[in-house]
Simulated scan of single mutants.
Amino acid sequence: MKLYGVTGWKNTGKTTLTERLVAHMVTQGLRVSTVKHAHHDTEIDHPGRDSFRHRQAGAGQVLVVSPARWALMTELRDAPEPPLDAMLARLDPCDLVLIEGYKSAPHPKVETYRAEAGRDLLATRNPTIRAIAADCAVDTALPRFDLDDVPAIAALIRAELGL
């Protein structure tokens, strides 16, 4: 599995770029999976659903299976967050895993940047960032792409990973 990340500050377009990269690369015949890191208590299940009730009752894991999909939810119950490598090992084989977040992990990344976010570039202190996708000019020696130039960003990722 080849890994490439999309990182950046909050509200800079990480999810939109990741979604568009997945759609673009799938049309090119690649099998793509994603990992999304959240810094808050993420709730993917909803109160009142059977699986939610199972978790609330104390189940450590709940496996939901339907004809369309299956999902395994694991409650950490105060255990430490598993490392990225442990989570990647749970994925089925694919050509590319796009990882949203995980700023400090060692895989290569493209940074999303929006002037209105009012934050500095992460790339100035993060050597794993290989390119910037921005909505404005940025002062960097790294390759810089428009946030909407998905084909060019995808081409960079494919070239760097040999896909």
Rank of each mutant, 00 (worst) to 15 (best):
residue 141 A to W: 14
residue 109 K to D: 02
residue 97 V to D: 11
residue 150 V to M: 13
residue 125 R to F: 08
residue 160 E to R: 14
residue 126 N to E: 12
residue 113 Y to D: 06
residue 103 K to L: 06
residue 155 A to Q: 13
residue 137 A to K: 09
residue 122 L to Q: 01
residue 159 A to R: 15
residue 74 T to P: 00
residue 127 P to L: 04
residue 98 L to A: 08
residue 92 D to H: 15
residue 88 L to T: 09
residue 75 E to T: 14
residue 89 A to Y: 08
residue 78 D to N: 14
residue 95 D to H: 10
residue 150 V to R: 13
residue 92 D to A: 15
residue 90 R to P: 12
residue 140 T to I: 10
residue 99 I to K: 01
residue 101 G to N: 04
residue 116 E to Q: 08
residue 134 A to S: 00
residue 129 I to K: 03
residue 119 R to D: 02
residue 141 A to P: 07
residue 78 D to F: 11
residue 128 T to S: 06
residue 102 Y to I: 02
residue 146 D to G: 10
residue 75 E to V: 11
residue 139 D to P: 09
residue 143 P to V: 06
residue 141 A to M: 14
residue 86 A to L: 07
residue 152 A to R: 08
residue 73 M to N: 05
residue 95 D to C: 10
residue 121 L to H: 05
residue 85 D to R: 00
residue 106 P to K: 01
residue 158 R to V: 15
residue 125 R to I: 02
residue 74 T to R: 04
residue 75 E to C: 07
residue 99 I to M: 00
residue 105 A to W: 05
residue 129 I to F: 06
residue 138 V to F: 01
residue 136 C to F: 05
residue 132 I to D: 07
residue 116 E to G: 04
residue 126 N to S: 11
residue 131 A to P: 00
residue 153 I to Q: 10
residue 82 P to D: 03
residue 97 V to K: 11
residue 76 L to R: 13
residue 133 A to C: 00
residue 81 E to F: 01
residue 109 K to R: 10
residue 75 E to F: 07
residue 117 A to M: 07
residue 81 E to P: 02
residue 85 D to E: 09
residue 91 L to M: 10
residue 98 L to F: 13
residue 121 L to K: 08
residue 106 P to H: 00
residue 110 V to I: 15
residue 92 D to N: 14
residue 158 R to F: 14
residue 156 L to N: 07
residue 125 R to M: 02
residue 138 V to W: 06
residue 122 L to S: 01
residue 108 P to C: 13
